[in-house]
């Protein structure tokens, strides 16, 4: 009864998934994420950001393409590599950066850090530091939509490393059993910390990992924001129609280390360079924009605008005061 996903399934042609204006918007957001992360890396090097800091550079097309398939009221939840998801959800770069520096102006008043930020207003449910935990939580976000009988969808992101966690499959079972509106998005960037997917997963095609539950799925070029949007639209429509969850495997790549302290011995410099040179999501989007008639000068202007926003965020993150000592004791329990 659990039909294998139709591997011949193709969403509408990627090139058609966004018009010029929409692609320009997507490009701006991707650029914002890239510049933001570069700046975060820089601030980390200066000792202004500490602890764990997992950069999203390379994977921008995934979250931006998916965000273009959803709207107000849809939920997003992800792992600790979460800065891109927050920016794509429309959260203020100033508040995100100030959280990274542990300041009172951060989204969690400095008490969460890189891995633990939330915005109820923007439908962003974290920011979770335990690999795989967000998959069950994201299933619960879908559950709440099912319970309320609305047509909202939970976008639940996790890496290919988390795809080996038991609770992921407990969640697949639950969501398929109950037909919950959850789009599961595996961001397969090939390396779980230092372990390649080949060394960690007996499954050679992660898009098939939902087959036992009859979950439809697609493997997607996660370096192409247009392809992501095209696939995401189909997945989201499936969920909104009450047909249950959908699995997307985004084939992507992270350019930077797992976190800031990464000896990078598990892959070659050439491998990284080749991806950057040949498959970069920003280059791809930019080329398409030029094809659609954008001129370089206009794109440069966007770049300048993004840089200014990121600088503003970095300045805010350094000038915002540290939390008051009294904050130590607040928000443990809801009082009253």
């Amino acid at each position: 009864m659990a039909a294998a996903p139709d591997k011949s399934r193709r969403p509408r042609k990627p090139a058609d998934s966004m018009d010029r204006d929409e692609l320009l918007k997507a490009y701006s957001t991707m650029l914002l994420i890239r510049r933001f992360e570069e700046k975060a890396g820089q601030l980390y090097g200066m000792g202004l950001i500490a602890g764990f800091c997992h950069l999203y550079i390379g994977q921008e097309a995934v979250v931006v393409g998916m965000q273009h398939c959803t709207g107000d009221g849809d939920e997003v939840i992800t792992s600790y590599r979460d800065h891109g998801h927050m920016l794509a959800a429309g959260m203020d770069p100033k508040g995100v950066m100030a959280e990274l520096t542990g300041r009172s102006g951060g989204y969690s008043k400095g008490k969460g850090g890189s891995m633990h930020m939330f915005s109820k207003e923007k439908g962003f449910f974290g920011g979770h530091g335990i690999v795989g935990a967000q998959v069950s939580l994201g299933t619960g976000l879908g559950f709440s939509n099912w319970y309320r009988g609305n047509d909202r969808v939970s976008l639940t992101y996790f890496g290919e490393g988390a795809a080996n966690q038991g609770q992921v499959y407990e969640s697949f079972n639950l969501s398929n059993l109950m037909k919950l509106p959850v789009v599961y998005i595996i961001e397969n960037n090939r390396y779980a910390m230092g372990t390649s997917v080949e060394r960690a997963s007996a499954s050679r095609d992660l898009s098939l990992n939902g087959v036992p539950w009859g979950m439809p799925s697609m493997a997607v070029d996660g370096m192409d924001v247009l392809a992501v949007k095209a696939a995401g639209e189909e997945a989201v429509a499936h969920c909104r129609a009450g047909k249950g969850p959908f699995l997307l495997e985004m084939k992507t790549y992270r350019y930077r280390g797992h976190s800031m302290s990464d000896p990078a011995k598990y892959r070659t410099r050439e491998e990284v360079q080749k991806m950057r040179a040949e498959h970069d999501s920003l280059d791809h989007a930019k080329a398409r924009l030029i094809e659609l008639g954008m001129d370089e000068a206009a794109l440069k202007k966007i770049d300048d605008g993004v840089k200014a926003r990121v600088q503003e965020a970095a300045d805010f993150a350094q000038s915002s005061p540290e939390p008051e000592p009294g904050e130590l004791y607040t928000d443990v329990l809801v009082e009253g």
């Binding site: 939920e75 939840i77 619960g140 319970y147 609770q167 079972n173 639950l174």
Partner: peptide, 21 residues
Amino acid sequence: DTPITEHGFTGMAVGAAMNGL
């Protein structure tokens, strides 16, 4: 009724609670 899957259904319930249920 849930399947026998404490880790999964507990996470699901917590997610639902984070969304206001």
